[in-house]
Simulated assay, not measured.
Amino acid sequence: MRAVTWQGRRDVRVETVPDPQIHEPTDAVIRVTSSGLCGSDLHLYEVLTPYMTPGDVLGHEPIGIVEEVGSAVDRLAVGDRVVVPFQISCEACWMCERGLQSQCETTQVRATGKGAALFGYSSLYGQVPGGQAELLRVPLADTTTVRVEHGPPDDRYVYLSDVLPTAYQGLEYAAVPDGGTLVVLGLGPIGQMVARLAVHRQIRTVGVDLVPDRLARAAQHGAEVLDATDGGVAERILELTAGRGPESVVDAVGMEAHGSPVTKAAQTVVGLLPDVLARPLMDHVGMDRLSALVTAIEIVQRGGTISLSGVYGGAADPLPMLDLFDKQVRLHMGQANVRRWIPELLPLVEDSGDPLGVESFASHHLSLDEAPEAYATFQRKDDGMQKVLFRP
């Protein structure tokens, strides 16, 4: 089959690799019909390269058709249409029963001390081949997949794999009070969807970004927007919120924030080192660009809540702990527990009125062969590229 493979820092290639096979009786193999390019994939493209191996198959946002099932799979049949969440979960362990599928005790990657195994996301999370491919092996297929109806276009459902649950959890964790204001830092795919969900709930929503296309898109869907290009974000946010700041902030940026040139340089240097040297530095030294999180701490109202949806990877990052303590800020964060939020999200994506605009959410539909250029363009934020769906 053809698949998008990682070959080195800023080097992804489309190659022919062996077709996936049923390894366990609980496995299924699906034929991928669409698969998203995620901002988290860009972390593997550059920052998290010490945890990657040449040939790793990328991608964790697929939808497709079941081609084959193992002997112990009883909830799926060949021909079913399924979304595949980015995490592999059992739905039966202590964590899953509490809605913490991202911590599934059956698939936890104990060798690296991490939570549930993830598709296409480095040795940190199990080195499971990903979904930017023609075919995908799905472990624990009965409890990992989400079966959806045939008929509607892939764009209607594919975001249930990651974008929608991650955004929904980010909004839930933000705990916006009645009549409160939400600020969303970063208007990439996750930030855009957080803003749409918040506006759908009639929450006053302010989106902040540097990219004009992203700001315009959020404004079209009802958010107030602030261009951060010229700085002064904190002052302008305070002006919009009676001098107190917003009750809730979602940081949808994460470890690759703009405005952290020293840390960016350090990330680049570490990414060029041999893995045997780079991994200990990534594991034990703070390597994140924290400007977005620092902004969140600065602007959030005293007694307010910061929700982290953007991925952070450093182990010992310097944070303004005195400010966090003094302002009585609540922090809530973590990988999205995908299946926990499906019951709330499925009616929204199946609504014929498309209240979240999922059918027009992708800015680009590309073939797998176009993946190398898509990664580069997405990282540069060029060509109006806001969300890519690959069609194998």
Results as ranks from 00 to 15, higher is better:
residue 155 D to A: 13
residue 153 P to W: 08
residue 167 A to S: 15
residue 164 L to W: 01
residue 156 R to F: 05
residue 159 Y to G: 12
residue 155 D to V: 02
residue 146 V to Y: 09
residue 158 V to R: 05
residue 164 L to S: 00
residue 174 A to M: 04
residue 150 H to K: 04
residue 175 A to R: 15
residue 147 R to C: 03
residue 161 S to L: 08
residue 167 A to G: 12
residue 168 Y to F: 15
residue 181 T to G: 10
residue 172 E to P: 04
residue 183 V to W: 02
residue 169 Q to R: 12
residue 149 E to V: 10
residue 156 R to M: 08
residue 146 V to D: 01
residue 165 P to N: 13
residue 172 E to F: 06
residue 172 E to V: 15
residue 153 P to M: 11
residue 171 L to E: 09
residue 154 D to E: 11
residue 182 L to E: 06
residue 176 V to P: 12
residue 154 D to F: 06
residue 161 S to K: 08
residue 157 Y to E: 01
residue 174 A to P: 01
residue 174 A to F: 00
residue 163 V to S: 06
residue 178 D to S: 12
residue 150 H to Y: 02
residue 169 Q to D: 01
residue 175 A to G: 11
residue 162 D to M: 05
residue 162 D to A: 04
residue 156 R to S: 13
residue 152 P to Q: 03
residue 159 Y to D: 12
residue 170 G to L: 00
residue 161 S to T: 09
residue 148 V to G: 02
residue 180 G to Y: 05
residue 174 A to Q: 00
residue 152 P to H: 03
residue 158 V to H: 01
residue 160 L to E: 15
residue 159 Y to A: 14
residue 173 Y to I: 02
residue 150 H to P: 10
residue 174 A to V: 08
residue 160 L to Q: 14
residue 162 D to S: 03
residue 181 T to I: 11
residue 152 P to L: 04
residue 168 Y to S: 05
residue 178 D to V: 14
residue 158 V to P: 06
residue 168 Y to M: 10
residue 169 Q to K: 12
residue 149 E to A: 14
residue 146 V to P: 08
residue 147 R to N: 01
residue 155 D to I: 00
residue 170 G to D: 03
residue 172 E to S: 13
residue 170 G to F: 00
residue 165 P to G: 12
residue 165 P to A: 07
residue 153 P to A: 15
residue 169 Q to I: 09
residue 177 P to W: 08
residue 182 L to V: 04
residue 183 V to A: 11
residue 180 G to N: 05
residue 168 Y to R: 13
residue 171 L to Q: 01
residue 169 Q to A: 08
residue 147 R to S: 10
residue 157 Y to R: 03
residue 156 R to T: 15
residue 181 T to M: 07
residue 181 T to V: 14
residue 156 R to Q: 15
residue 158 V to L: 10
residue 181 T to N: 12
residue 164 L to R: 06
residue 167 A to K: 14
residue 162 D to R: 08
residue 175 A to C: 09
residue 165 P to R: 14
residue 153 P to Y: 09
residue 175 A to F: 00
residue 175 A to M: 12
residue 166 T to Q: 07
residue 155 D to F: 02
residue 164 L to H: 12
residue 154 D to T: 07
residue 181 T to P: 07
residue 174 A to S: 14
residue 173 Y to N: 15
residue 181 T to L: 09
residue 169 Q to G: 10
residue 158 V to G: 05
residue 150 H to V: 11
residue 162 D to F: 01
residue 175 A to N: 15
residue 177 P to K: 06
residue 146 V to A: 03
residue 165 P to I: 12
residue 158 V to C: 03
residue 179 G to S: 07
residue 168 Y to D: 10
residue 172 E to Y: 10
residue 164 L to D: 05
residue 157 Y to V: 14
residue 148 V to P: 04
residue 159 Y to V: 05
residue 150 H to A: 15
residue 153 P to E: 13
residue 156 R to P: 04
residue 175 A to I: 07
residue 175 A to H: 15
residue 147 R to D: 00
residue 177 P to D: 11
residue 156 R to I: 09
residue 159 Y to I: 04
residue 157 Y to M: 10
residue 161 S to E: 11
residue 180 G to P: 00
